[in-house]
Design a protein around this nucleic acid. Structure first.
Lengths: 212, 212
DNA sequence: CCTTGATTTGACCAGTCGGTCAAAGCCACG
DNA sequence: CGTGGCTTTGACCGACTGGTCAAATCAAGG
């Protein structure tokens, strides 16, 4: 929503103009649309600029390069992406906590499918811009939460499964509905609400898996 | 492994030369490597050609365009991709059949991760070249097998869950280990065999989910 | 109104891309 | 050994891409 981890070319001291705020936001919005739909190499500055209703040189006045737009998007994305896992409460009731995490993650896929695809696109290519964060921030957070899960399992309040693979399965199952949407729609046909059905199904799945 | 669904420019009558066989195979192999690593737009004919140890015009002597190479790969891929589901035996023991399907699909992800990523890349972009097959062949096959699963559930030999979502979850969980490999490695650290662990975990997961 | 800095743009550039083409090499068979 | 068709290639092309730049426009304060 805020804070882009990018060098801002204009303005030496302090605040951004309203016009800067607006244009940077428009560029990020357009970039998200184009990058998530076509991948990094498929996206062109012309297309992003026109989507943002700017000229290409004008876009490059706000971001120094195509890569910079892409990086800003990925950086913004990661906070939102990790938040649900951060919210897993070590003091909560184990099964309920995990199920709540699953739901939050599924809601993210439903409400921000473009972000999900942007992320998938990046990891698919080997995560060239993300490897640092994956091995740093993400790995640390997972280590932390995996310990919580492990404790719950040791206390007999959660069925014993490999904690990290449990997390993988949550990520895989929730992202699938955003990233493979065309396939899901093709298989289900019309008259379905994929995310609503998925919510019920995933609750059943993880409840049965994790019931102590 | 064989049969590419593409117009073959040379040779009017019948058989392909050994040299044609070899070069077409080299191009497809190189194309798979490059497309799966960089996506369609990120791949260049020069790179595919050099990977195949051919000149670019020579590559275009065997395939009429970049798109043609891509299409040939997708076509080849789909047979292999659907085979495990086709092998689901309506006369078999339900839980064992599903678990066998999961294992076959996971083996596919382990042994053919590039194919998995190629497929993911395509669906991520909205499946422009696959929508026909998805809504036709795939949808029909799923309809068929979903009916089998439904029957097993009605007979009380399989826990009752939405059959199509059950299939989604199998696809999501098995493909995840190939498509998000960088993330998996970053989280697990060293000294792990992701696919071996995944095999055990997924067996547990689906056994608990599906036990009648 | 006029200055000053923020903003916007048209023209342009060098590099790369997918693809073409005519000519050259190569190979098997008569 | 020569010939005809398969195979290979260097040179080339037009389109497009990311990015630059100097000049024009705009907005706000004095």
């Amino acid at each position: 929503m805020s804070m882009d981890g990018q060098d801002e070319p204009p303005r030496a001291g302090g605040g951004r103009t309203r016009i800067q705020e607006r244009n940077r936001a428009a560029i990020l919005e357009a970039g998200l649309a184009v990058f998530s739909a076509t991948g990094f190499s498929g996206a062109t500055l012309d297309r992003i600029a026109s989507e943002a209703k700017l000229s290409k040189p004008n876009l490059l006045y706000y971001f120094p390069s195509k890569e910079a737009v892409h990086m800003a998007l990925l950086t913004n994305l990661l906070d939102a992406w990790l938040a649900p896992l951060r919210a897993l409460d070590p003091e909560g009731e184990p099964v309920a906590e995990v199920l709540a995490y699953v739901r939050r993650k599924l809601d993210l896929s439903r409400d921000f499918p473009r972000e999900s695809r942007l992320f998938a696109n990046e990891v698919l290519r080997g995560a060239p811009h993300l490897s640092g964060v994956l091995e740093g921030e993400l790995a640390a957070l997972v280590e932390d939460k995996a310990a919580v899960l492990e404790r719950w399992m040791a206390e007999g309040r959660l069925a014993r499964v490999p904690p990290k693979h449990l997390l993988f399965s949550i990520w895989a199952l929730t992202q699938h509905y955003a990233d493979f949407e065309p396939q899901v729609r093709a298989v289900l046909g019309q008259g379905h609400d994929p995310f609503a059905e998925a919510g019920d199904y995933l609750e059943t799945l993880f409840r049965r898996l994790l019931a102590p």
